[in-house]
Amino acid sequence: MTVRREPATPVLTVEDLSITFTQRGAAPTRAVDRVSFEIGAGEVVGLVGESGCGKSVTALAVMGLLADRNVEIGGRIAYAGTELLGLPRKRMRDLRGADLAMIFQDPLSALNPVVPVGRQITEMLSRHRGLRGRDADAEAVQLLGRVGIPDPERRLKEYPHQMSGGMRQRAMIAMAVSCGPRLLIADEPTTALDVTIQAQVLELLKDLVETEGTALLMITHDLGVVAGLCDRVNVLYAGRVVEAAPRHELFGNPVHPYTTGLLRSIPRMDGDRGVPLNPIRGSVNDLVAWADGCAFAPRCDRYELECLAGTPAVTELPGVDHEHRCVNPPGTPAVVR
């Protein structure tokens, strides 16, 4: 597959998105810091990073699901040319579910426990497609069948707790794609599932993207998912994109120490069992704000004083579609401390 950016009409454009949570009596927390990316039709873009790096918040901002109070959103989010930030609530409600849909991490808690699964699908069909009664039921049966749920007619009347985890996530996907959205956001859709089911669900998503030309924003911390699905990857650290490139380029030539650290930390089946795992040391912390320097510096093996001289600039690798935010990338001589 040729990987390319779609400058013509991206389905989703996120530009310099910043999200700050303000709480009275506490210092504001910047969860997302000038994040930019685009997704074209039929493209799968990954947002990768560890817990708390701002992946999910970005997704919620795109969906317009962040609370009104105590949140400041800056920058720009556009869906097929329509500015989403500042869009009237009602317009946003019309878009949500119909044009933009989201799949959540844990289908058990994301589905209403006291409403039959079928109803949770048909309520969308009646809201956005005007289907009611038998027509809606028939369409829901078809959707459930399409995502690979056996005996969909019977499943329609079941409650979420009567289904297996994989089936619940399939139902969730059926729900999300029920109104033919052009943008699908999947927030860790496989994290709560068994490994075998994970592969099936990813396969299903891939299939949907290919047949429908849906733009998919894939949020994950699992590089395996990225390798299997994404055309393009944005690596997020502490709310900033630290490296962005097409999948092959990123896996073949990772530059930022955070990315290389993530890749190194994947346990290998074919490796020597005696070798200890190779984690990134420390955990996400706010010792360094991006305004002062590289937020990853406290955990970085290649850290040098220069790293703390202001926000690291974006560096584009010559001749390839690959940018990163490292002051002291591998290839430049490491400073001996």
Binding site: M63, L65, R93, D94, L95, R96, G97, A98, A101, M102, F104, D106, S109, A110, L111, N112, P113, V115, E123, M124, R127, H128, M172, M175
Partner: peptide, 21 residues
């Protein structure tokens, strides 16, 4: 609850979200 956020993400009307969910 997560399922209320899901209901919001589905663009349902406020009435349906408040009563059913």
């Amino acid at each position: 609850e997560d399922f209320v956020r899901t209901a919001e993400s589905k663009g349902l009307t406020a009435r349906v979200i408040q009563f059913r969910h």
